[in-house]
Design a protein around this nucleic acid. Structure first.
Lengths: 264, 264
DNA sequence: GGTTATTTGTACGTATGTATC
DNA sequence: TGATACATACGTACAAATAAC
């Protein structure tokens, strides 16, 4: 035995417990096992689990424990529960949207810390959206073009909800890129950047510039000009990023708001 | 009133309930409110929540309901619980690793469906790692170089756990890129691709080629040659992707395994 | 080192929603 | 339309763990 795996106290050897694992709560173990069943494919989307009571019996725990485990998995979009007679707990269809939403929440929190900087967000967006524009030009279908044109029209018409349409245009480009993963990852980045900055609808010339950029990008996508679309998107983002950086971070919405929960 | 917002039955008008929202479970509402408090910054990392009982009283629900909500937030790495006298529930430090792990699980499940294809994964990896290599060459510190050299040494020495070192090399390049977001997103993609394919350690010439590529990439990163590193990484991935595509998908580990939970 | 207070963890019973007959 | 059966949702009581005294 080595020094690090045993201790000698008053001449008596004490057995090492270094290789022992900390006891884990029952609900965590249940959740892990169920997760394994789903990830490994023993349970497939649409499959119905036994009733909570039966699952509890199978694991030798109470229903409350099972329910906590089910909530964990449900929050990760692996399960969902339906109450009532023909209800039950079912294995969920995996869903890119759920991942995007989780990612946006997580990135939002991280972006408030030193773990991730504004520059990293902006850089990542550029890295992702520029190649996306290239592929959109190469792969877009007619339907994509129809949607993009419609989004652009709406963007130029309504002045009140400009950001909504701005976002939609970019999301559609990502969709037209034909890579769901790209979209899944980029949309949250986009959302987080947005949440940190408020582009005032009043900044007329800014929005006019954005519109012009979008028109140019759409034209190049229509032409199937990958290189051109990539370059145009690059220019667009460089301009946008300059604006974002000049604005500085958005003041926290809840600065100084007292909470009944603030403790310690 | 329009046809769609009201119905006439036997001459008597029925009030519209179109604008009514479906009742949401109590635990979900509690989770949402607590999530808001965290995301909005009313609760900061390290803050301690009141005891479960007090939270239950505040929301007017039972402790079980609160616990389900806490499990949801804990599984999203927003909270953690410590049991015992000075224990309690605390707001967690946001953590890039947790996001990566969640992403890997989610992407793993998605990659088993039509929602995301192997090609999309490989393409995304290329899109992310090539610019990462460029930036690694431009931004790497001395420590990064030390780590990379060490990883490369280990990779060439031990033949049993080659993939482990292969992965480590790529992760280090991402780390050297100086963009945590890039790393956070790419590592899971890498992991999912790996999980779908088994590169047999026996394929000697394959691993030799990978080693040679890594040596070349490291050399260019050392030289601070961004363009070169990007090109070398690109070549490396093109070669790897060809291998992955030729191998075909890994057979599901649990194909045909009966489960006590398989129902319906 | 035992006692105790406070916390989370677990078990079980009741309420409520939903489809079917 | 109402009774019924079965699922999840919720509430209460008890057990176990931990730290301070």
């Amino acid at each position: 035995m080595t020094e690090s795996t045993s201790r000698v106290v008053q001449g008596r050897a004490t057995a090492s417990l270094d290789s022992v694992n900390r006891i884990r709560p029952a609900y965590e173990q249940v959740a892990d096992q169920l997760r394994q069943l789903i990830v490994r494919g023993d349970l497939s989307p649409g499959d119905r689990l036994p009733s909570e009571g039966d699952v509890a019996t199978a694991f030798g725990v109470s229903r409350g424990t099972v329910r906590e485990a089910l909530r964990v998995l449900a929050s990760a979009n692996l399960l969902y529960s339906v109450r009532g007679a023909n209800g039950g707990t079912f294995v969920a269809q995996s869903d890119p949207t759920a991942i995007s939403e989780y990612l946006e929440t997580g990135l939002g929190l991280l972006s408030g810390t030193e773990a991730i900087s504004l520059d990293e967000l902006l850089e990542a967006r550029e890295l992702l959206e520029v190649p996306a524009a290239r592929r959109a030009a190469e792969r877009r279908t007619e339907q994509h073009l129809v949607d993009l044109r419609e989004a652009l029209e709406a963007e130029r018409a309504e002045t009140g909800v400009r950001f909504h349409h701005h976002r939609r245009f970019h999301v559609l480009v990502l969709e037209a890129s034909g890579n769901a993963l790209l979209q899944m990852v980029t949309v949250p980045v986009f959302g987080v950047i947005r949440s940190q900055f408020v582009l005032q609808p009043s900044e007329k010339e800014l929005w006019a510039g954005i519109d012009a950029d979008h028109v140019e990008i759409l034209r190049l996508i229509e032409d199937g000009d990958g290189d051109g679309a990539a370059q145009a998107m690059q220019n667009h983002l460089v301009r946008l990023n300059a604006v974002y950086r000049s604005l500085g971070p958005r003041p926290s919405a809840a600065e100084g708001v007292p909470s009944p929960f603030r403790a310690r």
